[in-house]
């Protein structure tokens, strides 16, 4: 893409072309390319053989999928991938359900103690996970949750952030709709689930995206609570895999690529929703 074609494109758009704009655009593009350079090199190196790793050209001389075959064939990555997917999905479902329910209750019900409950939940935003990790670990070992899916998931089943986000959105739902449903004799649960929830779908997708991504990439707690390799999540598995590979960079890059490909694919498919979701969460949160 040369500057000339860019200018003509801009001209075609009917905008006035100033050299400043072209320079800005070019700088932004270069910055963006620098941002993805680590990703490009990760993929490029994963397609190289051990001997080619020291050749720093981006395009591999003789690309090969051997590394992927080696890494995938022992089945561990698939297992870790499924673990991460399951854990992230389960936590996401739980958050969408409970955070919405609580957010809705706090937004739409009048009762004594409402404000107190809201403040109490909000105050947990101030407690860092790292502080809770030791008590959680104690609790998990007493209850036999160490090295189980539930052990990985339980700390994140509800979040104050999600509750706050959903409350903000439910406040924007007009009461008339809810009253009309009440007149029709629907019970409160059905009103929430059938009437209110569909009116905040953008918020739900934002919450779901955030929760899923956060749990998919989570490292600290899964590292602590899992002990057997069968239960590792992808980030923990990758980290131990990388150490085990004793610095064979092409293998490590293949592992890193395998951990990255799923989220990138999802992003390419759902780019519009994801970006919108992040914007929504950021503005209201």
């Amino acid at each position: 893409m040369t500057a000339a074609t860019v200018s003509s494109e801009l001209a075609a758009n009917g905008r006035n072309i100033r050299p400043g704009r072209v320079i800005t655009w070019t700088l932004l593009l270069i910055g963006g390319l620098i941002m993805v350079t680590p990703l490009l090199y990760m993929f490029s190196t994963s397609l190289k053989t051990a001997g080619q790793v020291y050749d720093l050209r981006l395009i591999p001389a003789a690309p090969t999928l051997d590394n992927y075959i080696r890494v995938v064939s022992d089945g561990r990555f698939l297992r870790w991938f499924l673990n991460s997917t399951f854990v992230a999905l389960a936590v996401t479902v739980s958050n969408v359900f409970f955070d919405s329910l609580v957010g809705y209750t706090l937004a739409k019900f009048e009762f004594r103690g409402r404000y107190f409950v809201f403040l109490a939940i909000l105050s947990t935003l101030m407690i860092p996970t790292e502080m809770l990790v030791i008590p959680w670990y104690l609790m998990s070992s007493q209850l036999g949750w160490i090295d189980s899916y539930w052990g990985i998931m339980f700390p994140g089943m509800m979040t104050a952030f999600g509750t706050f986000l959903m409350k903000q959105f439910f406040e924007g739902v007009p009461n008339d709709f809810l009253e009309a449903a009440r007149v029709d004799g629907l019970n409160e649960f059905t009103i929430w689930w059938k009437i209110a929830m569909p009116m905040v779908t953008p918020a739900i997708s934002a919450l779901a995206i955030f929760t899923f991504l956060g749990n998919w990439t989570a490292f600290f707690w899964p590292l602590i609570v899992t002990t057997s390799r069968e239960l590792y999540t992808l980030p923990v598995g990758l980290s131990s895999f990388a150490v085990e590979q004793s610095i064979q960079w092409e293998m490590i890059m293949t592992g890193a690529a395998l951990a990255t490909i799923p989220t990138l694919l999802v992003f390419l498919l759902l780019q519009r929703y994801i970006v919108r979701g992040v914007m929504l969460a950021g503005l209201k949160g």
Binding site: S141, I146, D147, T227, S228, R229, S240, V243, E244
Partner: peptide
């Protein structure tokens, strides 16, 4: 046969004992 990464190996043994 159960294996752990070297870095956490001792911790795992202790943790299992606690559990």
């Amino acid at each position: 046969h159960v294996t752990f990464p070297y870095a956490d190996y001792q911790t795992r043994v202790v943790a299992a004992k606690v559990a």
